[in-house]
Computed example of a mutant assay.
Amino acid sequence: MNFLVDVHLPITLSKFLSNQEGCIAIHVNQILQKWNTTDAEICKYADENDMVVITKDQDFKDSHFVNKTPKKIIRITLGNISNNDLVSVFMKNFFLILQMSSKEAFYLEIGKERITSIG
């Protein structure tokens, strides 16, 4: 499974994901125009490389449902939490994330109260 971690999320998350067996994770700051990469460029890059975009950004959710890009998205709606707590949330839900990855397209939202999946 390949992940592309958006600029507003910590590099710590991409490092954690990269250490999981069979996973590759890249932070947006490592590709294209780094933090200046547009959302459209991120979507295109993710779709071309079969990557799951991990973001806090509502714009990616809107683009997923309206424009069908990015095809695979995990949106974090936890508010401000520590990097360690964010990694813990991913560890706790990693099996679900792996299950979703086999789909051609999906939207997964991880919030404080619940996890919502579509796709």
Rank of each mutant, 00 (worst) to 15 (best):
M1C: 05
N2E: 02
N2W: 10
F3T: 08
L4E: 14
L4K: 13
V5S: 06
D6N: 11
H8R: 05
P10W: 09
P10N: 10
I11V: 13
T12H: 07
T12A: 15
T12E: 15
L13R: 10
L13Y: 03
S14L: 04
K15M: 06
L17G: 10
S18G: 10
S18W: 07
S18E: 08
N19V: 10
N19M: 12
Q20M: 12
Q20W: 04
E21I: 11
E21L: 08
E21G: 04
G22S: 12
G22T: 04
G22V: 02
I24G: 11
I24Y: 05
I24S: 13
A25K: 03
A25I: 05
I26E: 07
V28E: 13
N29Y: 12
I31C: 04
I31M: 02
I31E: 03
K34R: 00
K34H: 06
T37M: 01
T38H: 04
T38S: 10
D39Q: 03
D39C: 03
D39A: 08
D39R: 01
I42H: 06
C43G: 07
K44S: 13
K44P: 02
Y45Q: 04
Y45C: 04
A46E: 10
D47R: 08
M51L: 03
V52Y: 01
T55Q: 07
T55N: 02
Q58T: 11
D59N: 14
D59I: 00
D59E: 09
F60E: 00
F60I: 05
F60R: 00
K61T: 11
D62K: 14
D62R: 11
S63Y: 10
S63D: 08
S63R: 06
H64Y: 06
H64N: 10
V66P: 05
N67I: 08
T69P: 00
T69H: 09
P70I: 06
P70N: 02
P70H: 06
K71E: 09
K72H: 02
I73M: 05
I74F: 03
I76E: 03
I76K: 00
I76H: 06
I76T: 04
T77I: 11
G79A: 09
N80K: 10
N80D: 15
N83M: 06
N83E: 11
N84S: 15
D85H: 08
D85E: 15
D85S: 13
L86Y: 09
L86P: 02
V87L: 03
V87W: 07
S88L: 13
V89D: 11
V89A: 07
F90P: 12
M91N: 14
M91L: 10
M91Q: 15
K92H: 09
K92E: 14
K92M: 11
K92A: 04
F94Q: 05
F94T: 07
F95G: 14
L96Q: 14
L96H: 09
Q99R: 03
S102P: 04
K103R: 12
K103L: 14
A105S: 13
F106Y: 14
Y107G: 06
Y107S: 05
L108R: 00
E109C: 15
E109K: 14
G111Q: 00
K112R: 14
K112L: 12
K112C: 10
E113D: 13
R114E: 13
I115A: 02
I115S: 01
S117T: 15
I118G: 00
